[in-house]
Amino acid sequence: MSKWQTLQTRSFLESTARQRAQGLVDEGSFTELVGPTERFISPHLPELGEAVEFDDGVVTGIGLLGKHPAIVISQEGRFIGGAVGEVGGAKMVGALKLAQSIYEKLQAENPAEVQARRPIVLISFETGGVRLHEANAGLLAHAEVMDQIQNLRHKVPVVSVVGSKIGCFGGMGFVAAATDVIVMSEFSRIGLTGPEVIEQEMGRAEFDASDRALVFRTTGGKHKYIMGDCNYLVPDSIAAFRQQAIAIAALPMDAIENLRRIGSRSAIERQMQLVAMAAEVSPTDAKDMWKAIGNENPQQLIDANYTDFMAQAKRLTPAA
């Protein structure tokens, strides 16, 4: 078995950012850009006596999904919790700009081939958001990434891939929400404010951050899938995420637009309906919402394996 084939069988959750990036695209097609040997380390961390990493915690590169160039951004949670600083943020922005220039070149030179060969962006999130050690630069990076995602709208699908241990929190939670498509595994999470901060601000009675089961059924993949906050739930393997990415790359751009959860009049209407529903149910636990959506036995769904869950779970607004 080749190294790439071995990667396919690996747990996405257990893999490093680089393994995820290499495994998400076709065998042998990955080229890392601004990789570790370029040594773009954070200029801020050494001042604070904090350990540095040669890639500043973000792997960027390009590969192929069939005929589609796939621009990959992959965050590494084990380095300072995947927090986004100046260099890592700039690498994210640069990768998104590359996607745009590839698209524009294709559009200009070979417009007939756009559907078949347009690029796709895969962002594998593993982060709590801004790196506090370099907060201003990190925040700025968040804004620039959002900007770039808007520039790619209707042109290049931007896909959030969330299957990591830390998941996607803080400012990057907003960024994920702004992408076209979200793919998750049940072992990963998306949220804005992290569980510990909610507990600190609202009290343990409101949210017990040490209760991981509670944290996961509030922010985890299964909940996001039922609530329509993520489009696809896949098993925890690199191959499963890759298969989903291939399927998304093949979709026409208007179908991609339909997968968006925010950012259009119809999406806003759906959100308002959800707000009204939540007000009516006044849930004290995610399970209350699952029930209101038509899932008779939420606990059983929580414990169900992937196949059973997919067969049984009823969703709020199944996206196209």
Partner: peptide, 24 residues
């Protein structure tokens, strides 16, 4: 087994881990 979830799977669902050990 590489995770608590896989221990649950090995047990055929009989092991019921405390909330703090669950990541699902």
């Amino acid at each position: 087994a590489k995770s608590i979830k896989e221990l649950v799977d090995w047990s055929g669902g009989l092991y019921n881990p405390p909330a703090r050990f669950r990541n699902w």
